[in-house]
Amino acid sequence: MKILVPTKRVPDTDQKIVASADGLRVETDHIPHVINPFDAIAVEEAVRISERLRDVEVVAVGIGGPEYEQPLRTALAMGAARGIIVQCAKPLDPWNVSRLLKAIVERETPDLVLMGKQAVDDDANQTGQFLAALLDWPQATFASRLEFIGNELRVDRETDHGIETLTLTLPALVTTDLRLNEPRYASMAGIMKARKKPLETIAAGELGVPLEPRVEVIRYRSGDTRRAGERLASLDEFAALIAQAAGIGG
């Protein structure tokens, strides 16, 4: 079995991120970057599957400039077997990311695509769904549990109404939610091995996918994250306020 894990490199969104003065970009130069946390969960799940079942190859893929080596090496250190960087200098919208990923899926013919449900930088939550539709594959988004039963994949997915269980035939696409697992920290041996694992670079142009931007960024604006607080005199006053907000009591 082959599992393809698309990853994204994102700024650490726990740090303060602001729009540039001209509004044309987000200032992230000095912010530490990490592998998208939902993608780290996808890598972890793929590696756990490869540790549990025989003959499973985990391939991590990233789209971007040379700096994408970093999240891919992270995936390799966690246990992925090899990596692919699709070189593309331009920032892409989710539609074009999924079209490039479709070309990679056609080259690699994986049985399963496992990816984060969204990237924490733009929170678009579209790429997985687009990719499954382009491939005409079954999809299960927001997965909190994965289990292989025979040739089928049983997935628990988190919805606003509770846990929904789906059974998918392979090949399939699954996007990962927060509670699926807790990603590991790579071991020393894992980090050393990752340095020697193959990392292939493909120019986006070689994939024969003409880019068709559908999203135009007009302007970035920093939101006002500080909300005005109020000092209350007593706990009773606080309780009354909560009750009022909840629409209960007097």
């Binding site: 990490v34 966690m78 790579a186 980090i191």
Partner: peptide, 21 residues
């Protein structure tokens, strides 16, 4: 190189940090 308002309380280790390993 860190932002002047860098929030050290939210600093994270990379999943493949040699120091963590």
């Amino acid at each position: 190189r860190l932002p002047v308002d860098f929030d050290m309380s939210r600093m994270k280790a990379a999943r493949d940090s040699i120091q963590v390993a």
